[in-house]
Nucleic acid binder design. Structure first.
Lengths: 166, 166
DNA sequence: CGAACATAAGTGACATGTCAACCATTCCCG
DNA sequence: CGGGAATGGTTGACATGTCACTTATGTTCG
């Protein structure tokens, strides 16, 4: 029943609010759109894709679980859960680690490599059409700089179970 | 065993790749950090917060489920699930809709309003310190423009169960 | 050596999101 | 009026993420 003016604690200025809401909208819509395209295209989720790309870029196609988690900025537990799911689908496999009895290697399987190669072209197209192409001018450094600044700030402020950047 | 050069399908240019990876890192770290702060502070999740803010801005503090979903760019089903959880915690309530026997109103409860008011100051601080403050210069339009462009593009390309923008 | 501690990884419970299928009501139109 | 299509909303199954805890192995140092 209270008309118009509720208690409005210190909030953001209209400009700040606009940019923040756009940020929220974009960061919710873009991954969802990518996810749908990638899944329809190649039966992979975004996290699946990230894992496969990382492994494919690694010499020998294998990586310790913790290294993978660090590289993807994932919690260890998330990595463990996700790798189990991917293993069940045959996209990766675990191999014992000779040097350290506690550890495991994650290995890209042939099926995983195939799935990745099937997925990449379409995914790149989607990233271009939904993200890179719509960006204002060509060398627009505004966004790149902003992201870099945000990233370093965030990485500094993370102190969790997350494996700290080396 | 394959040294260096695997089959590398058309991928992104180094510049594109850099910006894309920064984007991915930031859009994964920022929500996680906000989530943690908000939860520690006020026991709310980010989606909880969004719902509460929206309702608090609505005259009478009530809204049809579909309106809420549209405003938040959520799928109907997500809204339904999430509102059930929030209802169970007493943050919102459902009220019958007199005009339309199929529909319901979502109402902000006193507890919901309290939780929101407890949460806002800290959340605003976090948004400032992790997002707004680290941004390069003051009126840096680079990011704002980029986000606006991305947003309109994305909203056009969404054709799902998602309620299309009015 | 062996006890305390650190590190690698996995597990279970639970919150969140998506998709598809499902009722119930309302609309539309003959 | 009556029957099919559209609309509002819910449900169930399942994928993903987080948190707290456990297990097993390695490390350090008296």
């Amino acid at each position: 029943m209270t008309s118009g003016s509720r208690a409005e604690p210190q909030w953001l200025s209209p400009d700040e609010q606009a940019i923040w809401r756009d940020w929220l909208a974009v960061t919710s819509l873009l991954p969802a759109a990518l996810q749908r395209a990638l899944h329809a295209d190649a039966g992979l989720s975004l996290p699946d894709f990230d894992v496969l790309v990382l492994l494919s870029e690694t010499d020998g196609g294998r990586l310790r679980v913790s290294e993978l988690a660090r590289a993807l900025t994932w919690e260890r537990s998330r990595a463990s859960h996700h790798l189990s799911r991917m293993e069940k689908r045959g996209l990766v496999a675990r191999e014992e680690c000779e040097d350290d009895g506690r550890g495991w290697f994650v290995v890209l399987t042939a099926a995983g490599r195939d799935a990745l190669e099937r997925a990449v072209p379409g995914h790149v197209d989607t990233v271009r059409s939904l993200f890179l192409d719509p960006l204002p001018a060509g060398g627009d450094t505004g966004l790149a700089d902003a992201l870099a600044a945000l990233r370093t700030g965030l990485e500094r402020s993370v102190t969790n179970d997350r494996i700290p950047p080396r």
